[in-house]
Amino acid sequence: MSEQVLPFYLVCDESWSMEGPDGVDAINGCLPDLHREIGSNPVVADKTRFCIISFNHEAQVLLPLADLSELTTMPAMSANGGTEYGTVFNLLRSTIEQDVARLKQDGHQVLRPAVFFLSDGQPNDSADWHVAYQRVIDPSWSARPNILAFAFNEADEGIIKQIATVRAFSYNGTLKPAQALQEFAQSLIRSIVRSGTSGGADGGMTLAMPDTVPGFTTIPADVV
């Protein structure tokens, strides 16, 4: 029997406005927690994979899809540049395509990937990003991911709702920005742990998504 694997993608804005302790520093501070929690849970580490893609006006795969228990270092995010969504969605599509093909080659049964998308600004390519985004959610693409989108600080709630395919969250100011980002990271950790250990009716894994995240207001994703 092939082993099921559920890939998670953290797609995080690192434009200049994310600079400092209320931005990428808070996320960077949570990455060791994520590594320790997932890496010390053998079943979850075995059944999930984790990738970090960061973006500003460019996009890059910071951490290629990996078994977290195998890692000894993780690249840090560093803020600068503008905000463009088109390039990151193009990269997300091609990265998922390659990752899924490789996992299948290794004999895994790959579950629909989950994307945690976080942005704090408005895209400078507002006229163009939809084309790249449509390729990510293309119904004819079997590996199209489930997307949970988080609007932080100045991000446009309307745009985040368009990006989310299952659920969106909007920063509501009830927590300090750094605390809210920690809660964002915790929701990601919990989602990975619970997905790796909770079964569906057929005995396989299911994606466990957060219903609420402290510091954020849950908003339904747009129906497309």
Binding site: H35, R36, N41, P42, V43, D46, S69
Partner: peptide, 16 residues
């Protein structure tokens, strides 16, 4: 951490 059965099913890691 609780010593769950799962730790008996994999090769040990330093994080354990």
């Amino acid at each position: 951490k609780l010593r769950e059965l799962q730790y008996l099913l994999y090769e040990p890691k330093a994080l354990w």
